[in-house]
Write a protein that binds this DNA or RNA. Structure first.
Length: 509
RNA sequence: GAGUCCCUAGCUCAAUGGCAGAGCAGUGGCCUUUUAAGCCAACGGUUCAGGGUUCGAAUCCCUGGGGACUCACCA
């Protein structure tokens, strides 16, 4: 039933809570006080009681005999369950540290205080309580409440306590309800936070410094993708949200910051599916005087170290597969990988027509692509990638699809580049960075030609970046790792929306 | 952008062409160690929206909205 006032439409349940709110205010009590008396979190209270029990054991008296000297705590949290039993009521509160049980006895707190609990509190409200800890007959550590107060009234009901919030759309649109009622969801985001923390610790420990580069850029670059475009009024010019951090981080390498990294959002104006969100998080790091083999060692050491930190092991379970992340990881050339899965040698079929013919000849199902490089990438995605469950460095990519990577000394058609695949998902991308400004300019020009041929995701010529490189850039290794993808891997989730707190959804009309 | 499936009470779910229902939550009552507390009672619906078919539509059809998955683009 919907109740309508001049200002709101709300449910009958909300109307009931508003009635209680009015009742509290009518009694001269502030339902939203600013000050909170709180000595312990839920977890700290439990730990304090266990510590007290341990001390007692040495002295002699049982906890029941010594109850009068049990720890006195002031706790606060959200009321998740209220279980009245006549003259005694049990409640469970939840704070960021966990849950704790409260016991209210009518003969202990008095008739009026006991009645007030039933009259004005609902599941979802915040409550603060003081009292001594004890264990119930069932052994649960519980606060014997001496006094309590309302910390904040909630006006909308929480989802059902047993099943939690199931509806996917509601879980994404109202993530706070998901976090409150689904412990799994909460754990995913704690793990994700742990991954980023562990990554920072690892890179800091290796002497990398964390930097911040522009998200709002006059020209996008550093990856092959369509950008989000916007307009900056003060300068009267078009701006882009970055699609990668790469070109700015390399400017820092040129500036003599030899080991830099950035963890931040990139934005790509592309599709939306279980592995893509238009706004996603990437770690990029650049290491002067290193090459792509150094980056491979860095990558496998870092990912294994992160997995150890957040899951306690380097061997993880993902979608029923056991994946071993301990180094060293398999290294497979792109050519050998595609040859093994399709029988096509991309070193033989080195132009678009020849490669198309070979694909047709074998009856392979791949979508048509406008350039040779994109077609090679398509073969990788269709036939090789699904086989790459265990962590694999696929190395030596065609120059045409790697415009920022250094050519291999013995074969200018290829670059010193690798992509990381784990659980059949692309998780990282790295190369020995191109530091020859003249070659870099040529690559940009070649990109323009590919764009003319129909490739919409080529990289624009960035004169300011070339200017920087003209001043001299040291040999450098660079790596990009997808934080969302890594989080999916380490939390065993197949949808990127499960590891992004607020995934992109269509706005409700 | 295309295809398939989904949308019912605050939440989790029933009802498949024939009286829209249950559990939880909420309301009233009983209950001093429960923890998915229990018992009794009453209450709670624009079945996503709009249109159509039909004696009759939550159910079938069409249009629109939102979501999930698959495909295409992408990391």
């Amino acid at each position: 039933m919907t109740v309508t006032t001049d200002d709101f439409d709300f449910s009958e349940l909300t109307a009931e809570r508003l009635r209680k709110l009015d009742m509290v205010r009518g009694q001269g009590v502030d339902p939203y006080p600013a000050q909170v008396e709180r000595s312990h979190t839920a977890a700290e209270a439990a730990a304090a009681y266990i510590g007290w029990e341990a001390e007692l054991a040495a002295d002699g008296p049982t906890p029941a005999e010594a109850a009068h000297s049990a720890p006195l705590v002031a706790v606060g949290g959200r009321l998740m369950s209220l279980r009245p039993h006549g003259k005694m009521t049990f409640a469970t509160i939840q704070d960021g540290s966990g849950t704790l049980q409260l016991a209210f006895r009518k003969d202990h707190i008095g008739d009026a205080a006991y009645a007030w609990l039933q009259e004005v509190f609902d599941r979802g409200d915040f409550i603060g309580a003081r009292g001594r800890l004890f264990r119930t007959r069932m052994g649960e550590i519980t606060v014997q409440v001496d006094e309590y107060r309302m910390l904040a009234k909630s006006l909308n009901p929480l989802p059902e306590k047993w099943h939690g919030l199931k509806d996917t759309e509601a879980r994404y649109r109202q993530r706070y309800l998901d976090l409150l009622t689904n412990p799994d969801a909460r754990q995913v985001f704690l793990t994700r936070s742990g991954i980023v923390r562990s990554m920072r610790r690892f890179l800091d420990g290796r002497g990398f410094i964390e930097v911040e580069t522009p998200i709002l850029q006059p020209l996008y670059g550093g990856a092959s993708a369509r950008p989000f475009k916007t307009f900056y009024n003060a300068l009267g010019q078009d701006m882009y949200l970055r699609i990668a951090d790469e070109l700015y981080l390399k400017r820092l390498i040129i500036g003599g910051l030899d080991k830099v990294y950035e963890i931040g959002k990139d934005f790509r104006n592309e599709g939306l599916d279980t592995t893509h969100n238009p706004e996603f998080t990437q770690m990029e790091c650049y290491w002067a005087y290193a090459d792509y083999t150094d980056m491979m060692r860095l990558t496998e050491d870092m990912v294994a170290s992160i997995a150890q930190d957040v899951t306690g092991a380097t061997s993880i379970s993902f979608q029923g597969e056991t994946i071993e992340l301990a180094p060293p990881w398999r290294r497979l050339s792109l050519r050998d990988g595609i040859l093994a899965q399709t029988g096509i040698d991309i070193y033989v079929h080195t132009d678009l027509d020849s490669l198309r013919a070979a694909i047709r000849e074998r009856g392979l199902q791949v979508s048509p692509k406008p350039t040779w490089g994109q077609l090679v990438d398509e073969l990788l995605g269709e036939y090789l990638q699904p086989t790459l469950i265990q962590p694999t460095f696929v190395i030596d990519y065609p120059t045409e699809i790697s415009p920022l990577a250094k050519r291999k000394a013995d074969d200018p058609r290829l670059t010193e580049r690798f992509e990381v695949f784990i659980g059949a998902r692309e998780t990282g991308n790295a190369f020995s960075e191109l530091n020859d400004p003249l070659d870099q300019r040529e690559r940009f020009v070649a990109q323009a030609a590919l764009r003319a041929a129909g490739d919409e995701e080529t990289q624009p010529l960035d004169e300011d970046f070339i200017l920087a490189m003209m001043h001299g850039m040291p040999p450098t290794g660079g790596l990009g790792l997808g934080i969302d993808r890594l989080s999916m891997l380490l939390t065993d989730r197949t949808s990127i929306r499960e590891v992004i707190l607020f995934p992109q959804l269509r706005t409700l009309r």
